[in-house]
């Protein structure tokens, strides 16, 4: 494994007003890895993603992205540096067409031959988006919107793709599709940081995992160990083995 992680967080504190949401979180993500963050509601999973992407300003601690200290950077700067966040709840731009949503993901890139070629590549992964190419994003179904949100994150060819609860609110069949897609992305050597409530499924595909509880990293390591540990599964994952 590469010695220089793509992302390295140490001692990160984040607060909403006076309420601390993260208490000294440390974690790292290496190139080509799929890292899962698991934990119950309110454990600080989404908060850590938002802090990394610059949406929330950390109170203290360090975030290094590709070897550079980026704590306190603005989201737009981080996006240009190669970080893509697919936010929770499928935040696409409803009045823009699929094409325009994708152009936004590529930082307002012009529609030219080489962009069309990139789109063609992308549509191999998301055939449905090609059919919907000229439609407004708001007219797509929930699953299609999630596909569009992920595609929008991918089009900028990010060094780090962060997915916040991609399976939230989708039917089981669509959840399967999303996870298949994540596996496909992983096989293409894309570095992914995945936040999921559906711990069993997220752990099944992850290279490494962090377990969050009450704003702290409670456990980190191999997903198999995590799943095998009865105490942890019963206390933090709320279940002893089966699919949620």
């Amino acid at each position: 494994m590469n010695n220089n992680p793509v992302l390295q967080i140490s001692d990160l504190y984040v607060a909403y007003g006076s309420i601390l949401a993260l208490h000294g979180v440390c974690m790292e993500v290496h190139k080509g890895e799929l890292v899962s963050i698991c934990g119950v509601n309110g454990a600080g999973k989404s908060t850590v993603l938002k802090a990394i992407a610059g949406v929330l300003k950390p109170r203290s601690g360090s975030i290094r992205f590709k070897g550079k200290e980026v704590a306190g950077y603005k989201p737009e700067q981080l996006h240009k540096m190669g970080m893509a966040l697919v936010p929770e709840g499928r935040e696409i731009f409803p009045s823009l067409t699929v094409e325009e949503n994708l152009r936004i993901g590529a930082y307002g890139r012009r529609l030219d031959k080489s962009f069309a070629a990139d789109l063609e590549d992308l549509f191999n992964l998301f055939p449905i988006l090609k059919e919907r190419y000229h439609q407004a994003g708001g007219l797509l179904s929930g699953g299609e919107q999630q596909m569009l949100a992920i595609a929008r994150g991918l089009i900028s060819k990010p060094d780090l793709l962060m997915l916040d609860e991609p399976s939230l609110g989708l039917s089981p069949a669509l959840v399967d599709q999303i996870f298949e897609l994540i596996i496909e992305l992983k096989s293409r050597n894309i570095t992914i940081l995945l936040v999921e409530q559906n711990a069993q499924r997220a752990l099944a595909i992850a290279d490494r995992a962090y377990l969050f509880a009450n704003g702290r990293v409670e456990y980190s390591g191999q997903p198999q160990e995590l799943m095998g540990n009865v105490d942890i599964t019963s206390v933090y994952l709320g279940h002893n083995g089966g699919d949620v």
């Binding site: 949406v55 989201p75 936010p87 935040e91 731009f93 009045s95 823009l96 930082y107």
Partner: peptide, 12 residues
Amino acid sequence: DDRYAARSSGIN
């Protein structure tokens, strides 16, 4: 449409 989502897409 959404200025927060736009920000995290790199738009000032």
